[in-house]
Design a binder for these strands. Sequence first.
DNA 1: CAGAATCCCTTACGATACTG
DNA 2: CAGTATCGTAAGGGATTCTG
Lengths: 110, 110
Amino acid sequence: MIKKYIEKSNFEETGFSYTLSLISGKHKMVILYCLMEFQIVRFNELKRYIKKVSDKTLSNNLKELEKDGLIIRTEYNQIPPKVEYSLSEKGKSLMEILDLLCIWGENNRN
Amino acid sequence: MIKKYIEKSNFEETGFSYTLSLISGKHKMVILYCLMEFQIVRFNELKRYIKKVSDKTLSNNLKELEKDGLIIRTEYNQIPPKVEYSLSEKGKSLMEILDLLCIWGENNRN
DNA sequence: CAGAATCCCTTACGATACTG
DNA sequence: CAGTATCGTAAGGGATTCTG
């Protein structure tokens, strides 16, 4: 079962490479965890939550997460603007596995 | 359980951040998968396997994987040099979870 | 064979200023 | 409030050459 990924011998085409591409990006994981905890979060709430992140980088990370179908962006047409972010079903299913990596990390550092 | 990582509100200290730091690096995953399949592999075998990778990058990736305790480097004192790489127990336990991400990726792209 | 050393380049990210 | 636009920096990685 591992073997099938290896035999392709082209890592770019493996499922793992795809998964990694979704979560690479400095703040994507923090964003996902934040959405998992609070369900619905706004742009500036995320910004305060992550502490050190530029508008540009946060915006880019959110766009990619949305494009990849992990989060949902809901825009309310009003002044001042209001945008809410939340996890999609796909995002939730990914988080279940990522939580295992959290636990593994807790148990294996040191 | 998720919550405890969030409440710290310092992602750098979470188990997930630690796990990610181990597998970031362009070729680390391919290396780990290769070691999982073939058990014992030499430097130039890895290089041929990955196809497009420079000596420097491969060397760096291997050093970090060794420093982080995921792989074992065995050096034979001889001319010409001979070095063998293999997975540690820690590396094997990580691969079990990473395989879930492979499967998730296979099922969720498109 | 298994790297180390050097040079170059791309990309991600941050800081700042500005806008509908 | 939720971004966009612009500029600048630093790290990662590639190609090439050299060595015990």
